Computed example of a mutant assay.
Amino acid sequence: MQNGGDVGAVLSRLIKGVKAIEEKAPFARDERLGYLTFCPTNLGTTVRASVHIKLPNISAKPDFKEVCDGLKLQIRGIHGEHSDSAGGVYDISNKARLGLTEYEAVKQMYDGIKKLIELEKAAA
Rank of each mutant, 00 (worst) to 15 (best):
E23V: 00
E23Q: 08
K24S: 01
P26Q: 15
F27A: 11
F27V: 10
F27M: 13
A28N: 10
A28V: 08
R29I: 12
R29K: 14
R29Y: 08
G34T: 07
G34P: 07
L36A: 07
T37V: 02
T37R: 07
F38P: 11
F38Q: 11
F38W: 08
C39N: 13
C39P: 13
P40C: 10
P40W: 12
P40T: 11
T41N: 15
L43Q: 07
G44N: 11
G44A: 08
T45P: 12
V47H: 12
A49M: 06
A49H: 11
A49W: 05
S50C: 14
S50V: 11
V51W: 08
V51N: 10
H52L: 14
H52C: 14
H52M: 15
I53S: 04
I53Y: 07
I53H: 05
I53F: 10
K54R: 12
K54T: 03
K54P: 01
K54C: 04
L55D: 00
L55C: 01
P56F: 03
P56E: 02
P56D: 01
N57F: 00
N57V: 00
I58V: 01
I58P: 00
I58Q: 01
I58S: 03
S59F: 00
S59T: 00
A60N: 00
K61I: 01
K61H: 00
K61N: 00
K61Y: 01
P62A: 02
P62N: 01
P62M: 01
P62Y: 03
P62W: 03
D63S: 02
F64M: 03
F64P: 04
K65S: 02
K65T: 04
E66M: 02
E66V: 04
V67G: 02
V67H: 00
C68A: 13
D69N: 12
D69R: 09
D69M: 12
G70C: 06
G70Q: 05
G70I: 03
L71N: 12
K72T: 01
K72G: 04
L73T: 11
Q74G: 12
Q74H: 13
Q74E: 15
Q74R: 15
I75S: 07
R76E: 12
R76F: 15
G77T: 04
G77H: 09
G77E: 11
G77Y: 05
G77S: 11
I78H: 05
H79S: 15
H79W: 10
G80Y: 08
E81M: 09
E81D: 14
E81G: 09
E81F: 06
E81Q: 11
H82M: 13
H82K: 09
S83A: 06
S85G: 04
S85K: 01
A86L: 08
G87K: 02
V89S: 04
V89I: 13
V89Q: 09
I92N: 09
I92F: 08
S93V: 06
S93K: 13
N94I: 05
N94F: 05
N94Q: 08
N94T: 04
K95A: 08
A96H: 09
A96S: 09
A96Q: 06
A96K: 15
R97M: 13
R97T: 13
L98I: 09
L98M: 11
G99D: 07
G99L: 11
G99T: 06
G99S: 12
T101W: 14
E102C: 07
Y103R: 15
Y103P: 02
Y103C: 03
Y103I: 10
E104V: 14
A105C: 10
V106F: 02
K107R: 06
K107W: 01
K107P: 04
K107D: 10
K107G: 04
Q108L: 14
Q108W: 13
